[in-house]
Design a protein around this nucleic acid. Structure first.
Lengths: 218, 218
DNA sequence: TAGATTGTTAATCGATTAACAATC
DNA sequence: TAGATTGTTAATCGATTAACAATC
């Protein structure tokens, strides 16, 4: 009987994989050939079994008593995360955040290649930011289609976000990375990942609040 | 018997609360007085019971057949997230991302007030960015202490991140918002929230990869 | 060989979802 | 009152953690 391939993975696992990659990249620089999951779990304060299960998702096979090949593990994690291929992306909304993302060199490591930026503000259109041209947003769907763009990054305000998402869907974009504080409505075949700064800040400040309340009542 | 106060809350719930706030703010603009959790769950494609449980965390009490007061719910969610008080913050690392965060107006809505920025690069020190002065990083612990800074934002590279975190701990900062791709080591009483862009991008690209693999084999 | 480490199955824990009584 | 909605308890689901056999 053929083994059924899994088409999903636990999202918590997905979110831990980039951290493993940081540790492994350091070990590679230090010329280490093998690593155990105990080592990784100590570095990141995680349960070793959890690390082992996460790594297993990538299809890596380790050697008992030795561990996993550092280089192979890096390759497998990158492949699992989809960072082994280059993906062309466009960005809409060249405000502060959008500009910062255009200049974020690290994206190259993840295969993300922003080929064009868009805005509706005439003062921004025509500029070139970190080597990326800013075009009028109406031109986006056509360019996305023509250049077979995979990923659309939304860094506009909440009012324009749905509109922009609709244009991205028109341009047959497959994945949307949404920084706008808005729940987007898109067809089933389009993948949306929300990256609102407020979510992360809210976790920090609510934990701070809870710990303060605790202290007050002890 | 006195009711035991809970000092923690499910993190998934914390992460959903900001989205409720977006919906509620819109309803407030439209002058709606009451909202049911069915309404919210439809807007955000969530289970209504889940919404009800999340809202209950904030201590809100609803009226059967009517729902929750929009204004009261906004206030309660903000209080739960710790967004009802202003918190002073400092930011270390005035690169692209750091600069973008300094200019992000929306933080005011969350009570975050960045009062100073720091860098080790002499070319950046002395500048004023979006009204915030950039100072040499050595001055940070002292200023943090003197001004009773609550939150430290780390937007330096991975190599400097731990060093910066140590300085923040010296300055008695209570919460660290870490954008650097590095697992920080801090004392128990300091809260760290990681906000690496790579985590969110990894979720997007691995889901895209999985859906592509699926299509290939169907 | 002995023992460290992987791989996997079982147990536990916590979050989500379902069911339903209470309420206005 | 009837019925929509809240609040809460119970059932389910999925992720984490524990236990242990397999392996080099």
């Amino acid at each position: 009987m053929r083994k059924i391939r899994k088409f999903s993975a636990p999202e918590p696992s997905m979110r831990r994989l980039p951290a493993y990659l940081h540790v492994l990249t350091r070990l590679l620089r230090e010329n280490r050939l093998y690593v155990s999951c105990t080592f990784i779990s100590n570095e990141l304060y995680l349960d070793p079994t959890q690390v082992r299960k996460d790594l297993a998702l990538t299809g890596i096979v380790g050697k008992p008593r030795v561990g996993y090949s550092v280089q192979e593990l890096i390759d497998k994690i990158k492949a699992f995360l989809g960072w082994d291929v280059q993906r062309d992306a466009i960005l809409v909304g060249v405000g502060n955040l959008g500009t910062a993302l255009l200049g974020y060199q690290r994206f190259r490591l993840y295969g993300l290649n922003i080929v064009a930026a868009f805005d509706k503000d005439p003062r921004r259109i025509g500029k070139t930011i970190f080597g990326v041209d800013v075009l009028p947003v109406e031109k986006m769907p056509n360019l996305a289609l023509r250049k077979k763009i995979d990923i659309g990054i939304i860094t506009v305000g909440e009012d324009a976000a749905q509109e922009v998402a609709d244009l991205m869907v028109q341009g047959f974009i497959k994945g949307i990375w949404n920084f706008a504080p808005k729940a987007l409505i898109v067809p089933d075949n389009v993948i949306v990942e929300n990256a609102q700064l407020s979510v992360s800040l809210g976790v920090l400040t609510s934990k701070m609040k809870l710990s303060e309340t605790e202290k007050d009542t002890v």
